[in-house]
């Protein structure tokens, strides 16, 4: 007789993984036919899943217990960026000073506008600090958040919101503001919306995806290195 607990967790993984992959696949088909930002799979899929979780009176713990393996695949996906980055090495070698300036300006804008807008909205303390690293990818952001006195858990949520919102808004910006170079289009997504933005950039073009992936990684490293300095300034 197998352990009932084991069967329970196996069922949980099967159920929640099937729900997640199924809704994602469906949302992708819909987005392919009607490519509107509000039909973006990263927006539609979580809403549908949340409805199922709430309808079944399940909790986030139940859900993530069954789908954590999907989040873990973000690690191999990060490694996978080595291929497009290597294939675009000529472009990167030619334009690294431009990308570096873009990353510094973008990262500075992110921290300054987050701080200023949060102050304006009357948010302060750990909440405001948790907002500062939200435009870099989750593992880096949580590291920085802890360093500067924020709440890493909350930062993780803000990072994800930034990613979804950024991937959608990047499209809107590109539709209205003409950005001629693939280099700038990639940097827009990589600096502004980390992994989710990079995934979107990779769908727009191979160069855009490679630039976004590279910039995402470098901007994350840059922020981890700058965090002690920012912490000093905030004290």
């Amino acid at each position: 007789m197998p352990d009932p607990l084991l069967i329970d967790s196996a069922l949980r993984i099967l159920l929640w993984s099937a729900v997640t992959v199924g809704f994602y696949w469906g949302a992708k088909q819909i987005y392919r036919r009607w490519p509107r930002w509000w039909l973006s799979p990263l927006l539609v899929t979580p809403v549908l899943i949340a409805a199922v979780v709430l309808a079944l009176h399940a909790s986030y713990r139940d859900y993530i217990g069954g789908t954590h393996w999907l989040v873990l695949l973000l690690g191999p996906a990060t490694v996978a960026f080595a291929i497009p980055i290597y294939e675009q090495r000529g472009l990167i070698r030619r334009h690294w000073p431009v990308l570096l300036i873009g990353m510094l300006v973008g990262s500075g804008t992110s921290v300054l506008t987050s701080w200023a807008l949060a102050t304006l909205a009357g948010l302060d303390g750990a909440l405001r600090l948790s907002l500062l690293p939200r435009s870099i990818s989750t593992p880096f952001a949580m590291e920085v958040s802890g360093d500067i006195g924020g709440i890493p858990d909350l930062t993780a949520v803000f990072v994800v919101i930034t990613g979804i919102a950024g991937a959608a808004m990047g499209d809107i910006i590109l539709a209205r503001v003409p950005i001629a170079s693939a280099l700038a289009r990639g940097a827009l997504f990589g600096v502004g919306a980390h992994g989710a933005g990079t995934a979107r950039a990779a769908q727009i073009g191979e160069t855009e995806g490679a630039v976004a992936g590279l910039v995402m990684v470098l901007v994350g490293l840059l922020n981890v290195l700058a965090a002690p300095l920012v912490a000093q300034l905030l004290r």
């Binding site: 997640t20 899943i49 986030y60 999907l70 973000l74 996906a77 497009p84 994800v160 995934a199």
Partner: peptide, 17 residues
Amino acid sequence: LLADMLLFFVPAVLAVL
């Protein structure tokens, strides 16, 4: 892996709950 990277973010979004 890269084509469907967005899928790997989906479960993390539910942390909002």
